[in-house]
Structures are given as structure tokens and as C-alpha cells.
Amino acid sequence: MEEKSKKKFLERETTRREFLKLTGKGFGGAVISMSILSMLGCESQQTVAYALPSGLLLADASRCTGCQRCEISCTSIHDEKIQPFISRIKVSENYNFGNEGPRLDYYRQNGQFGNLSMSPETCKQCREPYCGRACPAGAIFADPKQGNARVVDTSKCVGCGACEEACPWHLPTIDPETKKSTKCEACGFCAENCPTGALRMIPWEDVKKAMRRNGYRFS
């Protein structure tokens, strides 16, 4: 049993590397070319893709309906409580007035009170993460167990908020209850719980299948 899951893991990891080679992107490669995405059955221009250990994560704002189940799922699994404020994916804070907040012409801007567009924000897992560079305690590191996602070592985190400040999208958040930074670990659990596929996790097995059927030869 253990052997089998190990083999499966290795197979996944191979597909992930092959995929990244094909797309010419490293881990943090956000925008993957449309032709590759359409190979996976994804036609939206608004799609952003991330290669996570467990699969390819696609985020498509045009399918987001603002239900915030991603935030609920994220903090349940990581924090054992429900607390959208510290969710590693942000939907509710942009719900009414988009990323920019209310402006004079709010009725034309993003958000429920504007053009009804949603602005889900996901961690980019930057190659050179601003959050990590800003952390005075060296608490943010690339975790090989998480496919080199940038994660927080809570034993080192001092809760100073430098990561939140430094991130251009302010995605890491200091939990006011624990005084620790909460930051996306690229686990993909949000996607598994998105009821409209605005976040979608395509397992590497399926990516492999799609690549194979589109004539890609694995070395």
C-alpha cells in the first residue's frame, strides 16, 4: 500500500515537472498560455493557473459567485475555526466594492455594488516572494513537502505583519487571535470545495491524460 502511494506520488511529481517544462514556467508561473489551458478544457481569458503538488490549480474569476466557501474551507482545515479574515484566499473583502474599494463611480467598478464582478485573490507563490524577503524572523520558507510552496514556520513567526505589508496583494494575514501569519500553502483545498469551479484542481493524472491525448510524449 505504501509502495503504491509512493509510486503515485512520484508519477504525479513527474507529470508536474513535465508540465512545467512544457509551459516553460517555474512553480510561481502564474499565467499559462491559453492553448495549454484549452487543452484542459478551459476557455476563459480570466484564468490563472498554478502548478501545485496535488494538481494544477485554475482560478477563473468569471465563474466566481462570491459564496465564500473557499474562505470557510481554508480556515477550517488550517486553523480549526471559521475566520474569513485570515483566509489565505480572499473573496469577501472584495465582495461589495472590488479590490480598490468604493469610488465615486462605484456603480461601474468591480463588486456587487458595481459591475457584479468578483475579485478573488489567490497567493501567487512568487519565485522571489516579497513576504519571505520582508520577514525579519526568516519564518517564510520554500517547503519541499509542499512542492516548494512558500509557507510560514509558525514557531519562528513573531506576528509583526511585515509579510502582509510587503505582499503587493496583502495576502498573508496576521491572525488577531494567535498573532501568527497565515499564508497560502498551496494545498488546493479551497478548489476542492468551490461549488462553481471558479477554483478548480485538475489532478496530475488528468493533466497527464490530456497532455497524452494531445500528442505529448512523456520522456
Partner: peptide, 16 residues
């Protein structure tokens, strides 16, 4: 097109 090699039969089952 596809490279089946020794995993041929698995893929065929999966595809069918």
C-alpha cells in the same frame, strides 16, 4: 501520436 509502449493496455482500457 500517443506513445503507448509497455503501458499500452492500461491506456487503452482507460480511453475506452
Amino acid at each position: 501520436m500517443g506513445d503507448y509502449m509497455d503501458e499500452n493496455i492500461d491506456y487503452l482500457q482507460e480511453d475506452v
